[in-house]
């Protein structure tokens, strides 16, 4: 019975099926809103489903230089890692599907796997664009990851637990962590790190299309590219869900006017808000150069996170 529920959890809810549907839908919304922000109509909201569906049905062309198991396995591993994180973050209740002692550490590690897979895919593709993109991705990873970890650490220190359910339960009693003035800089830093993690403007340097075509994913096509798109979309929702759980109180159930609103609705609203925030950010800036991005991460963003950490440690 337990095995069955685990399989259901990883494949249907909140695993692969649910995460893909919501991820594709949210990226579709992101593209539609982007269109309107640029004063054009934009694609329909379900465009991402059509794109991924079409890619899945297309012929897979792998260049001769990229004929390696790594090149083939990279998208699958990335998708698997992203879906696994989905099981670890609270979706329909404060309690995630899988619980561990210190699940935040596991989440941090797992969230790096898609990025690492992308680099491996880029390096093994045998294309100079892939190699340049992967090189830039490594550099950028060292920028945003530090900020991201410090920002998470702030929340952990504030609550005094490495368990995500504990942090969510703490916020249910004490109010959202983002409303605490000492944690506000950390939340902003985390948002900046998310922008880099999701490779969105101004930090879309590893896949800057006008410079290095599509970076690591240049040589991917057909179903493999579809899986990459899916992995990216799931990663988006996962990162947004993690941010919601850490700073926005996670999924909570409400009663408004006598109507019971399940916590899954709360989860969807909060993640959508975060996705829309990143959409706005990516539409108002130009892409930075890699040195400028690193400088920004290592000075302003790190400073914000560390100030917050010091404040949490010092001010009672």
């Amino acid at each position: 019975m337990e095995v069955l529920s685990f399989i259901l959890g990883s494949l249907v809810f909140p695993g692969l099926l649910f995460a893909s549907l919501i991820g594709l839908l949210y990226i579709g919304i992101d593209r539609k809103v982007t269109g309107h922000m640029q004063n054009r109509i934009g694609p329909p909201i379900w465009q991402e489903f059509l794109d991924v569906g079409k890619l899945l049905s297309k012929e897979d062309i792998t260049p001769g230089a990229a004929q390696s198991p790594i090149f083939t396995a990279a998208p699958l591993v990335a998708l698997g890692a992203a879906v696994t994180v989905m099981l670890l973050i609270p979706v329909s209740s404060p309690q995630p599907t899988l619980t561990m002692v210190a699940d935040l550490i596991v989440i941090i590690y797992l969230l790096n796997i898609p990025a690492i897979c992308m680099m491996l895919g880029g390096y093994s593709s045998g294309s100079p664009f892939g190699a340049t993109g992967a090189g830039r991705h490594v550099a950028q990873l060292f920028g945003y990851e530090f900020v991201f970890i410090i920002a998470i650490l702030v929340a952990v220190v504030r609550v005094g637990s490495l368990g995500l359910p504990t942090i969510v339960n703490y916020q249910a009693q004490q109010g959202w962590l983002i409303l605490d003035w000492r944690l506000l800089p950390a939340a902003i830093a985390a948002l900046v790190a998310i922008q880099g993690k999701l490779l969105r403007v101004p930090f879309d340097i590893p896949e800057a299309e006008s410079e290095i075509v599509h970076g690591s994913l240049t040589e991917y096509s057909g179903p493999k590219l579809a899986i990459w798109r899916l992995a990216y979309d799931v990663e988006t929702i996962v990162v947004a869900g993690l941010f919601a759980a850490l700073f926005l109180g996670g999924p909570t159930a409400y009663v408004i006017g006598g109507v019971q609103i399940p916590s899954i609705v709360d989860f969807l609203i909060k993640t959508l808000a975060i996705v829309l925030l990143t959409t706005t950010l990516r539409n108002i800036m130009a892409r930075l150069r890699i040195d400028q991005a690193l400088k920004f991460y290592w000075t302003s963003a790190t400073l914000l996170a560390i100030i917050s950490l010091v404040l949490v440690l010092v001010v009672p």
Partner: peptide
């Protein structure tokens, strides 16, 4: 577009 500022790209072309 070359510097990754797609909003300005769309507005200029409008």
């Amino acid at each position: 577009h070359q510097i990754g500022f797609n909003t300005l790209f769309m507005l200029a072309w409008r």
